[in-house]
């Protein structure tokens, strides 16, 4: 392919993919033909106040990321370094979560969380999000621990560390890239997910950002406030875009890991 033609074609294609995102940012700061931050002011006062939805989302993200890291680190350590009864079965069950379509299991989870006293709660939602993260996270952490030479933790044990001491002092620093990737994907899932909070959260004051902002479109009683909605879109998209641009290495590692292969 000749170079100028190739680059011209690629430039047009890139524009098609990037344009909607740029347009969204542009339209969120326009009022008529002038620059205005009005839509962001309206967004701040929307519903219970965008601060409430942001707080809910941040709580959900913190629970999900911390919980996923904790559970997947221990499980990855167990699968990489120990033999225990039911090891093979548990690993297959964790991977089987990938086989089960997300929306179909949310209806029984709605009932189950009610029984556990966790209906309409961010903690219950976080536990469900952690479960959905497990296949990717455990697979990733198991591989991360396996790529650390065994001599490293064996030396620590000879020096008197228990298995927990070896994990915390010697192994964890060696698996930081894996932890970043797992935490990154847990963040993206809990920050962005719409279906699980839609079904498992029912009070307005506990809505996460995606549910609250989508409600501008669904429960508008006639008129959608488009610029404010686009301000909401930009507000939700910016952290994800920033993370993508800053942490690309970890991002791509997640894709390449093969955990997506189910």
């Amino acid at each position: 392919m000749r170079r100028p033609a190739y680059y011209a074609g690629m430039a047009v294609l890139s524009l098609l993919f990037v344009y909607p995102i740029v347009w969204s940012g542009w339209s969120s700061v326009r009022l008529g033909d002038a620059f205005s931050l009005d839509s962001y002011r309206k967004l701040a006062e929307y519903g219970e106040g965008v601060g409430v939805y942001l707080t809910n989302t941040v709580i959900l993200v913190l629970f999900t990321v911390a919980g996923t890291l904790l559970v997947a680190t221990f499980a990855g350590y167990a699968f990489a370094r120990f033999r225990f009864p039911g090891k093979g079965l548990l690993f297959v069950l964790i991977l089987a979560i990938l086989m089960v379509p997300y929306p179909t299991i949310l209806i029984p989870l709605y009932v189950l969380l009610g029984w556990l006293g966790l209906q309409d709660s961010l903690l219950g939602l976080a536990l469900v999000m952690i479960m959905f993260q497990l296949p990717f996270a455990v697979f990733m952490m198991r591989n991360a621990f396996e790529s650390v030479p065994r001599t490293l933790d064996e030396a620590a044990m000879i020096d008197g560390c228990g298995s927990f001491g070896a994990l915390v002092r010697v192994l964890l620093p060696a698996v930081v890239p894996g932890l970043v990737t797992v935490g990154l994907f847990a963040f993206l899932a809990s920050w962005n997910d719409y279906v699980a909070p839609l079904i498992l959260i029912s009070s307005n004051e506990r809505f996460t950002l995606p549910v609250a902002v989508v409600n501008m479109r669904l429960h508008n009683f006639g008129a959608v406030d488009y610029p404010t909605m686009q301000a909401g879109v930009v507000f939700m998209a910016l952290p994800c875009l920033a993370i993508f641009l800053l942490l690309q290495r970890y991002y791509v590692r997640g894709f390449m890991s093969g955990a997506l292969r189910g």
Partner: peptide, 15 residues
């Protein structure tokens, strides 16, 4: 076997 099981327990409970 018990040590490994203990580390895998949180994941097992969630599953």
């Amino acid at each position: 076997g018990l040590t490994g099981l203990a580390y895998a327990a949180p994941a097992a409970v969630i599953v």
